[in-house]
Computed example of a mutant assay.
Amino acid sequence: MRFTSRREVADLLAVEAFEAKASRKRDLDAWCVVFAEGQAELSGGTVDPRALAERLSVEAEGRVQRWLARRAGTICGAAELRPQQHDPAAGFLRLFVTPSARRRGIGSRLLARVAADAGVERIQATVLAGPPGEPFVDGWRVVLRLELHEQRLDQDTLWRCHELAMAAHSDRRLVFWEGAAPAHWVASFGRVMGHVLDAPGAELQMASRAWDTAAVRAWEAGMDGGHLLVGAVVHSPSGDVVGATVTTVQGGEARVAEQHDTAVLPEHRGGGLARWMKARQALRLHELFPTVESVTVTVNRQNASMLAVNQAVGFRLLRERLLVEASTHRLRACF
């Protein structure tokens, strides 16, 4: 039996820029499968590769850069670099290699090409703590330590959420909507979303922005497909939204939903509104999407108040992730 040498493996590998709109359908579909499977492994959620391919095929021209790796003609690696809105000098990298092709230097070759082509000063990425993610970014600076939490929508969790949802909150009521916020709540919902940046470390992950009606509508349109479900607390005397939590479900048969932002206006904090919202949101999600078995969310390890809220409504630690950063100059020098 003859074994393939490392040199021969390298000769079989090709790394190239990937233009989704100009690519062959076969390549677009294969790239999206690699990317979707890698993102699901990293985030605990689900990504529909067919929906991703449809979105990329009509994507407007922008500053997003993408690459692929082929081994013996088969796409086995995918990378995407997006400029960070809160920091134009930084780009956020998502880089994935199929499990069967790992530990062959493919990820390193792909990263070398990204570093060579990148038009930013620094590259940030999220990786799983421990192998294989953490060793791959050895030497990168750790910006944040994050926890990926999972809420299993089993009977015990649903009963716990039912008890929490029954709590009385004077002068406040819970409301829900799917998709776009109702016109009479969009302004106050935007004010609440502006306070997502109050969370520890949030300014390292997102840009400060004015959440006027146009910004809310743009945010809604920019959510990654599927169903957008919002649970909100309304202050009855004023009729304004004073707290909100956001969840997305990718398709009607999805088994995993993703929770995004949860925020409460500063003057309404300390009374258990976040716990109340999240508990009722889980029940509402179960009612609307009975195939969903679990919900995932990422929380900064320093966000003690949200960690406590998550624990109260049945979230448990699934895995740890790191937000890491390296200068593009340093990465180029390494290869």
Rank of each mutant, 00 (worst) to 15 (best):
V34S: 00
V264K: 13
S208Q: 14
A308D: 04
A165R: 12
T245G: 10
G107P: 02
E287F: 09
P237Y: 14
S43H: 03
W67A: 00
E287M: 09
A72M: 07
A40I: 02
E59W: 08
E253G: 06
A333H: 09
V114P: 00
A199L: 11
A36V: 01
A183L: 10
A69K: 00
L13V: 09
S170D: 10
L52D: 00
V114L: 01
A333N: 12
A221G: 12
A257T: 11
D138P: 06
A165F: 05
L265Y: 11
D48A: 01
G222I: 05
L153I: 07
A125G: 12
A282H: 08
L158E: 10
M277C: 03
Q259M: 13
L146I: 09
T74D: 11
C76D: 02
R6N: 08
V120K: 02
E287C: 11
S23H: 00
L56N: 01
R209V: 13
R102S: 04
G45Q: 06
W177D: 03
E150L: 11
M166L: 13
A168H: 15
R102C: 03
G226Q: 08
H149M: 15
A17L: 14
C334Q: 15
V264W: 10
R63Y: 04
P131N: 12
L81N: 02
R55D: 00
L273E: 11
A51G: 07
V216T: 05
L285F: 12
V186C: 01
H195Y: 15
A69W: 00
A199D: 12
L110Q: 01
H260R: 11
W31S: 00
E80Q: 05
R70T: 00
R94S: 01
H86W: 08
L204P: 06
V143T: 10
V313Y: 04
T4F: 03
N303S: 05
G243N: 09
A112R: 05
G231S: 07
R269G: 09
